[in-house]
Amino acid sequence: MRTPSLTRRGLLGRSAATAGGLAVVPLVARAAPEIPATTAPPNPVRTPEMVDVVLQVNGKRLPLAIEPRVSLLDALREQAGLTGTKKGCDRGSCGACTVHVDGRRVNACLTLAIRCQNKAVTTIEGLAAGDTLHPMQAAFVAHDAFQCGYCTPGQIMSAVALIEEGHAHSDGDIREWMAGNICRCGAYNHIVDAVRDVAGQTDTGRG
């Protein structure tokens, strides 16, 4: 969606009176510049150790030219434009980068992209069915299971896996099996509410 912008005409040319005793500010706003293609894209310098790989991400082929040291996380964020998967610590300590590889939740920051050839990678961008949110995504919205939203994709990917693993038997279980996902805004209570809600809906994993 294009971001609406303020116009000089609207605000200076036609600005009106005062309201409620408050002065109308002289608004100096300029049209929002779109990001222009100012510079030619620098293709990374090709070195002998660079390799061509093809990943399968969210059901689509993703061909990449990468060095072997590139993590799955950086491949997604820096090359594939899939920035929904977040980098919080880059050391496996926070869970913000959680994705599914062959159906299992893993830390993308500690996964080499080159090792993911012939494996199915699912990220937060692949969870919804078109415009229909995955039930876990919908539950996170309904329970306000986040504030800043940065840990949220990782929490959701972990929560979806947790239910499939059958680890949503109790609130205590949910907490323990979500322990790898840190939320610094402190939405834990609401995240547990969301996971419990979805576990109840799907009627699996709770005994």
């Binding site: 496996g92 869970g95 939740r105 893993v106 500690l110 680890h167 099996w177 790898g180």
Partner: peptide, 9 residues
């Protein structure tokens, strides 16, 4: 040990 994600790896 660790977290569920790390234990998967």
């Amino acid at each position: 040990s660790a977290s569920p994600q790390l234990r998967n790896m």
